[in-house]
């Protein structure tokens, strides 16, 4: 398994990262180096092992805590939009979205 520049471009687009030409090739070799050390991991026999998604859930009995359905957040639009790049009459502005 070895990543090609085409893979890099596909992933970069999925992640919405604009890459410079030299960045592409560097990333390509660096990622391939990295996946070199990952091969060991792929070889491990994990049949029958339950994936551990939450580190303290060793007994597998962790349950989601639920909140009572009560509305309790005041309007803080101004404070929330202080760091917004482009706002007009309360709306966040973005380049035209075509459907």
């Amino acid at each position: 398994m070895s990543l090609t520049l085409a893979d890099i471009d596909r992933l970069a687009h999925l992640a919405r990262l604009g890459l410079q030409p030299d960045e592409r090739s560097l990333l390509c070799s660096q990622l391939n180096d990295f996946f070199g050390i990952v091969e060991k991991m792929r070889a491990v026999d994990t049949s029958g092992v339950v994936p551990l998604a939450h580190p303290v859930d060793v007994r597998g009995d962790m349950a989601l805590r639920l909140r009572e359905d009560i509305a309790g957040e005041p309007n803080q639009r101004e404070a929330n939009q202080i760091s917004a790049p482009a706002v007009e009459s309360g709306l966040f502005l973005v380049p035209k979205v075509i459907e």
């Binding site: 990952v38 991991m41 792929r42 491990v44 994990t46 092992v49 339950v50 994936p51 551990l52 998604a53 580190p55 060793v58």
Partner: peptide, 14 residues
């Protein structure tokens, strides 16, 4: 092959 396998080995490490 990657994420799920990693989560399984994570369990083994724990």
């Amino acid at each position: 092959a990657y994420y799920l396998q990693a989560q399984k080995i994570r369990r083994m490490i724990a």
